[in-house]
Amino acid sequence: MTDLLEPTRSPDARLTAAQARRLHDRLVRVAAAEGLLEIAYRRIDSPVGSLLLAATPIGLVRVAFAAEDHDAVLHHLAQAVSPRILEAPAALDEVVAQLDDYFAGRRRSFELAVDLRLARGFRRAVLEQLPSIGYGHTASYADIAAAAGNPRAVRAVGTACARNPLPLVVPCHRVVRSDGTIGQYLGGTDAKQTLLALERAA
């Protein structure tokens, strides 16, 4: 760099934060209109910590707890689905509204388009059983294994729940151990306790 070109780095020539936001919004708008926004995401705070929400044009594709490392989740989405990923909060407005209602005890089930492409085979069969566990109720891993058509696959049900791409919305928190203890949860056992208590109280 020579001082001759210094004006191009002067404050009035630099990209301001407000300008960067405006340009980013414009990019999101045009990309969506041209069908180039393949994953829109947003981060929100919730009673179970910070959540990452990601959607494809088909529907909600990923809900991730802070413990899963949001950056790692986005990198995985870039490999597994598409790297055409932009932070586009407005695309998740409906998801956020329904989650807000759920956490406030006003909503018992979600009415959202979902994209289950991250779960295949038996894992997907397990996830498809989970919405049948009613709000405020629980089922055991063995119950779900039987419902998914493979009563001996109790451990595989545990794995499917542990790798649920859409926790909260697909209610893996309602699956507990046969002995009544709550079992593991990808958002941590505290988060699982919080959700079960919320549903019992509402």
């Binding site: 990209l15 980013h24 990198h75 790297p83 990923i85 932070e87």
Partner: peptide, 11 residues
């Protein structure tokens, strides 16, 4: 990398 990171880093 997610394209968002590219926009942030190279914008």
């Amino acid at each position: 990398r997610p394209f968002e990171d590219v926009v942030t880093d190279e914008g």
